[in-house]
Design a protein around this nucleic acid. Structure first.
Length: 401
DNA sequence: TCTGGGGTCCTAGGACCC
DNA sequence: TCTGGGGTCCTAGGACCC
């Protein structure tokens, strides 16, 4: 039996690197990708329509200091990170830290195109690949010829090289006995690095890390661990399993203990079915359910149509329709309703969602509205209803609330 | 000057059924 | 007077991830 060798591969500053392929003149500058609906990029291209993109001067690009809006940063280039700017940070905060940084919007189509290409490149070399979003994958090296050489370094290098040749993009790879450690290892040598971790490296390389480095320990658990005096993964490992179970519950406590000891036998999963699909939007300004009713109604209809289109395009039907609100104070409310039949119809989703909205407090301003369809089945496998359920016709389907 | 959008999984109570 | 227990589905909220 060969040793289990699992790799985690993470594209370096993916969204920003994709933009740099188009605008190589910006290399080395602090750049952030993110923000809202502004079509900065289109404006820019319009203004310089007579020139290739690579000749648009850096001075022409918008700066963070001029940004107005509610967005967050998706990716920051390494020069921008030196100023303390990072992903998930609000644009306004980032503007204070690095006002001179250039801002570009996310080009999802372009990002997805490169995502497909780098994943296909990996699969040609090592077929057992698990998708973890646009810019990350796990790869099972165990059965790949040469996957054991130098602990996986040789194969990792081959993959890195192939991705760079095909796309011009760099990535960082960690190889370890399991997904949990591989995920941590891929961060050890960024960007464009490779890290190999062996079981015997647990104490020297994993235990000194902050608890938050464990994939699955977020801000809440971190706070609670700190309050208990636990700061490193080694601190967790030093605790009795039962003690952790006492403080964090049977399931989470035991998991935490296993994680701190580097135990994880989850397989690399190559295929999975979606559970839900949703669309949501944060408004430019907070909207009041009564005073801004018309505007909200139009947004709601639009969200329903978009989620319905997503379902149809991907070939799914759903049975649970849900809505999500975020109030101006950031509290979130969700309501959902399970229908007796599967649907991908915008009007049906709109109607069920409208009923959900009636069950939630509409007495204060909203910041966000979302629509979700769950309990999905592949359209061709959907059970046919015993009889067609008549939809009430008429104005009711067009009304909000 | 607050903090996006798209997901997954878990928990927990109540309904309902056997 | 005494009130089982197990399973599944539905709903709401929350933690976490990319």
């Amino acid at each position: 039996m060969p040793d289990r060798r699992i790799a985690h591969l993470d594209m370096d500053a993916f969204f920003a690197s994709v933009e740099l392929l188009r605008y190589p003149q910006l290399k080395g500058l602090p750049i952030v990708i993110g923000g809202g609906r502004r079509t900065v990029d289109e404006e820019l291209r319009g203004r310089f329509a007579d020139r290739p993109l690579s000749e648009i001067p850096p001075e022409a690009f918008p700066r963070l200091k001029d940004y107005v809006g509610r967005g967050v940063i998706t990716t920051a280039t390494y020069p921008a990170r030196q100023f303390g700017v990072g992903s998930a940070m609000g644009m306004m905060k980032a503007a204070r830290l690095c006002p001179q940084a250039l801002v570009l919007p996310v080009d999802f189509e372009e990002v997805r195109r490169f995502s497909r290409t780098f994943k296909a490149t990996i699969r040609e070399i090592a077929p057992v690949v698990e998708d973890r979003g646009v810019d990350e994958v796990y790869i099972d090296f165990t059965e790949v010829p040469g996957g054991q050489r130098q602990g996986g370094r040789a194969l990792a290098r081959l993959i890195q090289k192939a991705i760079f040749e095909r796309t011009g993009l760099t990535c960082s790879i960690g190889v370890a006995p399991n997904k949990l450690i591989a995920k941590m290892a891929s961060e050890f040598d960024k960007p464009n690095g490779i890290s190999i971790v062996q079981p015997e490296d647990l104490q020297s390389r994993i235990w000194p890390l902050a608890v938050r480095k464990i994939n699955g320990i977020g801000p809440k658990a971190e706070t609670r661990l700190h309050a208990l005096g636990l700061h490193t993964i080694g601190d967790i490992a030093a605790r009795e399993r039962d003690w952790l179970v006492e403080h964090f519950g049977r399931s989470y406590g035991a998991w935490m203990h296993d994680a701190a000891w580097g135990r994880d036998d989850r397989p690399v999963v190559t295929e999975s079915e979606p559970v839900s699909m949703s669309r949501e939007t944060t408004f430019e300004r907070d909207l009041h359910p009564v005073r801004d009713r018309a505007e909200l109604g139009a947004i709601f209809s639009d969200l329903c149509e978009r989620v319905a289109e997503d379902l149809r395009r991907k070939g799914y039907l759903g049975r649970t329709i849900g809505i999500k609100l975020r109030y101006d104070d950031f509290r979130i409310a969700t309501r959902d309703q399970t229908l007796d039949h599967y649907t991908a119809d915008a009007a049906t989703i709109r109607k069920a969602g409208g009923q959900c909205l009636k069950r939630v407090d509409l007495g204060r301003r909203l910041r966000l509205l979302g629509v979700r369809v769950g309990k999905l089945v592949k359209a061709e496998l959907a059970p046919q209803p015993a009889k067609l359920v008549a939809r009430e016709p008429g104005p009711g389907t067009l009304e909000l609330f």
